[in-house]
Design a protein around this nucleic acid. Sequence first.
DNA 1: GATTAAAGTTCCACAAATTCCCACAAAAAA
DNA 2: TTTTTTGTGGGAATTTGTGGAACTTTAATC
Lengths: 139, 139
Amino acid sequence: MFGKFTHNVDPKGRLFVPAKLREELGDVFYVMIGLENSLMVFPESKWEQVNESFNSVPLSDSGALRYIRSNVARCEPDKQGRFVLPPILRKYANLTNDVTFLGQGDHAEIWDADAYNAKEAAWLANSDNLATALKELGL
Amino acid sequence: MFGKFTHNVDPKGRLFVPAKLREELGDVFYVMIGLENSLMVFPESKWEQVNESFNSVPLSDSGALRYIRSNVARCEPDKQGRFVLPPILRKYANLTNDVTFLGQGDHAEIWDADAYNAKEAAWLANSDNLATALKELGL
DNA sequence: GATTAAAGTTCCACAAATTCCCACAAAAAA
DNA sequence: TTTTTTGTGGGAATTTGTGGAACTTTAATC
């Protein structure tokens, strides 16, 4: 999963799955809260792994995990390729108008478009950042 | 992959893969942002290596890599040997009219032709540059 | 318990964008 | 020159993305 795609949430809270990600995300996927008010989207296969990890943590340590897990949404897109994102998640990520999907290899991320653009622009503005990152990748 | 080839982007954002690079790039290749507003093009085999590097970085540290990865495009040339470069990448590299491909061994680079020519001219203007470079190569 | 309102789903329709395909000019090879 | 390959343009058909209507379900009110 790669690339950046921007769509809007409609008044009913429906989100369109970008065509390029649709196949990889499949008919059923899971949305969970992520870092910095982003959301993470897992295709079913990956979700099973994540779920395993949840289960391997002892219940007593699970304060934070309880919160995360209780806000997971199982989503199934409709015929047009849209799905309804529960209000809690929409609120967590401040999704109001435009929303960007980011392909991140084995999963995707959902961000409020403005918030993400600001972050990205700030990062790109410092060209050392890119040079360092490429070096880390061995390029 | 070697050589320098210049073609144009058409209004639909299509780029022609230079004949001499076509075989080495294959039916599927990946385009990613590079230094100084250039783009990097990887054949599938090389891309797999790069992708490994991406995956070896823990999610929490991946801030920088997020921006890079979300600007990757998987490309498949059409029957004429052209492929569509997503607007984000075209914009990043300021591709409007003429575009040059540079063969760089295991990958290729894409530059705006004017921008690249200017850089090249500036570099050539100082003859010490060449001497230094050859020395680095042990020649 | 019936009626109405609100919220949530499913479906249909349409514009815009993208893909696919055909045609042709220019350049290179035979 | 003739033939093939390379490079470019554009139209037709399909897909994508968006809005909203119609229908269900849930809840609220009398």
